[in-house]
Nucleic acid binder design. Structure first.
Length: 121
DNA sequence: ACAGTGACAACAT
DNA sequence: TATGTTGCCACTG
């Protein structure tokens, strides 16, 4: 059976370089689901109740919305934590939790890598 | 099977 | 710019 959408999302996120960020929508596009941005956010949200030892290597803090803003409505504490994690790896995050995409945006994977993730790996 | 849920995004005001 | 609205989606009881 093919990998679940969530697993594919985690695989992509794991490949975001340290100090760079990308958006929910871009990840959805990379996986061939241009309209599944919301589901990507849902997948990352699911990490919060992961079982011990799994999902620890998913750098979820490197995913922001299309405007370059940290998107965690009704979760101020988590938003602040995400900002701190990003600053810790060299990304400038303003007081308004905004990030300059022209400077930190990760363009994404090459199709060969995408194919690898989609199939199996 | 089906309605509800959200860490989205594009568009309209 | 700042909200509000609408379309979309994978996953869950």
């Amino acid at each position: 059976m093919a990998r679940s959408f969530y697993e594919q999302v985690y695989d992509v996120v794991r490949r975001i370089p340290q100090g760079r960020v990308t958006s929910y929508g871009r990840i959805a596009n990379m996986l061939g689901r241009p309209h599944a941005a919301r589901a990507v956010g849902y997948a990352l949200s699911a990490l919060k109740d992961r079982r011990p030892g799994e999902g620890d290597d998913v750098p979820w803090q490197r995913v922001v919305n299309s405007q370059g803003r940290i998107s965690l409505p009704n979760r101020e504490d988590a938003a602040v934590r995400q900002a701190e994690l990003l600053r810790a790896e060299g990304v400038y995050v303003g007081e308004d939790l905004r990030i300059d995409l022209d400077r930190y945006l990760w363009e994404g994977l090459h199709w060969v890598e995408i194919d690898d993730i989609m199939r199996r790996s």
